[in-house]
């Protein structure tokens, strides 16, 4: 494994290894540039099932089914996708089903694309309104430990948790 100090280190490699360590078996996502490297890694890993969604709320429901069946999963979404999930999150809260989610931010640090700003600015308030616990990270080196802590809160304490990755980490992205 490349050490964190190395230039070629990317948080996605540690997060992928963490997923393996804690037994993540289902990964659901609609792609986003900020998550692309993590998606490439998990897609190439045959020990976990990657599921491409048409809309992020599908992934919330899928995670509920996975948990009912005894598996752990993770939902990967852009901040825009959080807006697509709100009603489905009520299932996690009402049933106290764990949800671990990684949210890559747009419309925030250094954004130049105006259409990302409204949902980006609503993302954390919307998650909190839906009673999802938010861990915001703005340094790449802190992503793995934050995901690890969030996974405990999700799977051991039965909570819905979102690790929100600042745009500072992923870069300002393209047009989407």
């Amino acid at each position: 494994m490349v050490s964190k100090k190395s230039k070629s280190w990317h948080w996605s490699q540690d997060v992928h290894q963490l997923f393996k360590k804690i037994g993540i078996k289902q990964i659901a996502y609609v792609p986003d540039g900020g998550l692309a490297r993590l998606i490439e890694r998990v897609q190439a890993d045959k020990s976990m099932r990657s599921v491409v969604l048409t809309t992020e709320e599908e992934g919330v429901a899928q995670m509920a089914g996975a948990w009912l069946g005894g598996q752990r999963g993770v939902l990967l979404t852009q901040s825009g996708g959080v807006g697509n999930c709100i009603n489905m999150l009520s299932m996690m809260q009402e049933c106290r089903i764990p949800l671990l989610s990684l949210v890559s931010m747009r419309g925030e640090w250094g954004e130049q694309y105006p259409w990302q700003v409204p949902m980006g600015q609503s993302t954390i308030p919307a998650l909190e309104a839906a009673k999802v616990i938010v861990h915001h990270v703005d340094q790449a080196e802190k992503v793995p430990e934050t995901v690890e802590a969030a996974a405990k809160l999700a799977f051991d304490a039965n909570r819905a948790v979102a690790v929100v990755l600042s745009q500072r980490i992923a870069g300002s992205g393209g047009q989407g």
Binding site: K25, Q26, R49, V51, E57, E58, G59, V60, A61, Q62, M63, A64, G65, A66, W67, L68, G69, G70, Q71, G73, N87, M88, S90, M91, E94
Partner: peptide, 21 residues
């Protein structure tokens, strides 16, 4: 497992369960 809400989520709940079992 009865959904009492989460309208639109039944099929994907089934998918997550089917993949797990």
């Amino acid at each position: 497992f009865y959904l009492w809400g989460g309208m639109g989520g039944a099929v994907l709940t089934g998918l997550g369960l089917a993949l797990a079992q």
